[in-house]
Design a protein around this nucleic acid. Sequence first.
DNA 1: ATTAAGCTGTGAACTTTTTCACAGACCATC
DNA 2: GATGGTCTGTGAAAAAGTTCACAGCTTAAT
Lengths: 212, 212
Amino acid sequence: MVSEKTIGRLSLYRRLLTELLADDRLNVYSHELASLAGGTAPQVRRDLMAIGYSGSPSKGYDIADLADSISSFLDNPNGTRVILVGVGNLGRAIMSYFKIQRPTLNIVASFDSDPKKIGSDICDRPCCDIAELETKALELDVRMGVIAVPADRAQNVSDKLVTAGITGILNFAPTRLKVPDHVYVEHVDLTTSMEKVAYFVQSGRKSTEPDA
Amino acid sequence: MVSEKTIGRLSLYRRLLTELLADDRLNVYSHELASLAGGTAPQVRRDLMAIGYSGSPSKGYDIADLADSISSFLDNPNGTRVILVGVGNLGRAIMSYFKIQRPTLNIVASFDSDPKKIGSDICDRPCCDIAELETKALELDVRMGVIAVPADRAQNVSDKLVTAGITGILNFAPTRLKVPDHVYVEHVDLTTSMEKVAYFVQSGRKSTEPDA
DNA sequence: ATTAAGCTGTGAACTTTTTCACAGACCATC
DNA sequence: GATGGTCTGTGAAAAAGTTCACAGCTTAAT
């Protein structure tokens, strides 16, 4: 079984590979990829081993082929339909951020409670009433949700997403969500990230870890 | 030496404690804090042990006192002055997000290259020309920076921050920054976070890890 | 051909992080 | 003041993650 950390790095490797490909590179060595990713060469090799990918001892890894292998491991072949709840500054930022991204990740609609936003299009996607969250989510057949509402609303939104059959949540609200066992939650906690950096600045300690 | 992961959790505990305090709670047990934080009781106790904090076997931890202890461990007593570079959607979201936050973290100015933004106030803080980044950063005596510019500009901004004496960077651009050893970088990689969730949705695997 | 150099794949060692499990402390109640 | 229940603090065990180090392959050059 592939570890959560490895999943994260594979995603990173794929992006780096895509950049290399745009530079007309064909092959890459584990130590090059490691240096771009901020990791070590054995780490890269282990990660690729985890998905059963093999390179060649002399040429390293075939960039296009490896990127494809990672994609077929990570992605749902039918794409992943996503809804986003909470169209504040942050929500809008995320929407516009992912318009450009991989077409396999598709934010199909957003939700908010502000009547001024409801009914309009935000980043070319309809913004719906948060009251309709459950019905629309079922209707749109989505499995993944992004929460970008204030902390005090997050748990409620999460519950609604779960009853609508969502099994993965990316949560930007500064609350730890309670969800059933079968639901995966990734917390992006801006306050904690900020405070971590502040701590290391204050303490004068340097980075040791390969990174989160 | 306190581990990076523990630092992150301490930041989380402090926020939870503040919430409990607002509910007029006085004491809390490790298992309660653990449940709020999405962790385990021994983990909480270990983390508090790391900063040398002791509770009482019967009452658990004194909420106000523990929050203070965490603060005096994490925070710089003089506060941490921060600048933010890149006032797009995301940058603005972060600015407004941290206006409300702990007063010890203070975003004192923002920077952008857009003439329309330069000179105006954004979230009550002056927005300056990115060309003046190095001089202003020195002048403002900041040690920490937030990067919210597009990927292709991030390394350049990072270099400027480093020469201006910054020792901690929170990076939202989807690039791994190269910095000298004494500089701490925390990457918040939205694409990777998103793709991780998408993977777990697709694979039907549930969360195992205590979380990033 | 043979040698040299430099890569990958991976068992094994190591390090870090988490969990277990229990001694000792404390309070409430009888 | 003894008894029982429930907590903390922590050594020790376990698990997870990372790095080492080297065998084996592949190419290039002699």
